[in-house]
């Protein structure tokens, strides 16, 4: 395929040279900018000394019940340094976590990182929160403290109070197979996953210290009874399938039912159905107009016809507004 070139010096050649000259300019500017980026990047990162400075401040000033939120969510190197008593929260989506268990939130931000957008973070995070003082800088780290207006102290948590629960597998004919408590875990007869315990699990990237309750399969239910659960202004049930199993949609997988009932009357209070492929924590709570008694005997159960890949993690809690 011949490529007949026009004579040098023709208008066409001049036009091409102007285009190439523009390329030269673009490439030169891009090279200078890229070199600046590469050479300046180390200066935009925090040093170990910066982290130690933050850790010292947190050791002195943090209180029991505080939490440390990371921005960007993935910049979790601080976990190596901060006091162990201070929970660290940083996962994909953590910017919008209400963190309702915590009255105060420390935010450790890295505003100088490439693609950091601290203003956008604040737009997501600030509503409902009040800054307590000005941000402090430790090199490229920025530490701020907030009062959490979304704080709602829990008066009951099934996960935390599971040692006092009665756990059993309920057969379709209502026979009960006891799952005795061994001092840490309620272990049921059958496979190892048939247990009830507060465990760390991931539900759609979020670490949850939740109640592990794996459905036994068929019409059988795994049941945990809480004979006297204290209740606040509302009762909330949250449940999800653990890890990557949540995303699976194979036709043989079945819906997982998580139900909360009043133990004495059998009245259904809350119910969640998790179909295959549904990711994340599903949530149900009692209507706000419903007046809850100060305590109630509750029963929570989990069932799925096919228990395969239905590793269920749930939270049942009751909270109230924070008193000023």
């Amino acid at each position: 395929m011949p490529n007949p070139e026009p004579a040098a010096g023709s208008p066409r050649i001049r036009q091409l040279r102007i285009l190439s000259l523009a390329d030269f300019a673009v490439l030169t500017v891009a090279a200078v900018a890229a070199l600046y980026f590469q050479l300046s990047l180390p200066g935009r990162l925090p040093t170990e000394g910066d982290y130690r400075g933050v850790a010292e401040s947190l050791a002195k000033e943090s209180k029991n019940g505080d939490v440390l939120l990371l921005y960007p969510w993935w910049a979790e190197r601080a976990r190596l340094y901060v006091p162990r008593s201070l929970p660290v929260v940083g996962y994909l989506g953590s910017d919008t976590n209400p963190l309702r268990d915590f009255p105060r939130i420390w935010v450790l931000a890295q505003p100088n990182l490439p693609r950091s957008d601290i203003k956008a973070f604040e737009r997501r995070f600030i509503p409902g929160r009040t800054a307590l003082g000005s941000p402090r800088s430790f090199g490229n780290l920025q530490l701020s403290l907030y009062r959490n207006g979304l704080y709602r102290p829990a008066v009951f948590s099934a996960a935390a109070e599971h040692p006092s629960a009665r756990v059993y597998i309920e057969e379709p004919d209502h026979r009960q197979l006891d799952c005795p408590f061994d001092g840490k875990v309620h272990r049921c007869p059958g496979p190892e996953q048939l247990r009830v315990d507060q465990e760390w699990h991931e539900v759609l990237y979020e670490p949850r210290h939740c109640l592990w309750m794996h459905p036994p399969g068929g019409p059988r239910r795994l049941v945990a009874e809480f004979p006297s659960a204290k209740l606040g202004e509302r009762l909330t049930l949250a449940a999800g399938i653990v890890g990557e199993y949540a995303s699976r949609r194979q036709p043989e997988l079945t819906v997982t039912h998580v139900v909360v009932e009043e133990l004495t009357s059998g009245r259904r209070l809350l119910e969640i159905a998790i179909p295959p492929g549904r990711e994340g924590m599903q949530q149900a709570e009692t209507p706000s107009q419903l007046q809850l008694p100060s305590s109630m005997a509750l029963k929570i159960w989990v069932q799925s016809d096919n228990p395969a890949l239905r590793e269920t993690c749930l939270e049942l809690f009751s909270d109230r507004s924070a008193t000023p």
Partner: peptide
């Protein structure tokens, strides 16, 4: 990102998140 549950398993087994 797809392996976050593995890290949770470590927390659970080792009794530490640090």
């Amino acid at each position: 990102q797809e392996f976050r549950e593995h890290e949770m398993n470590v927390w659970q087994a080792f009794g530490t998140e640090t």
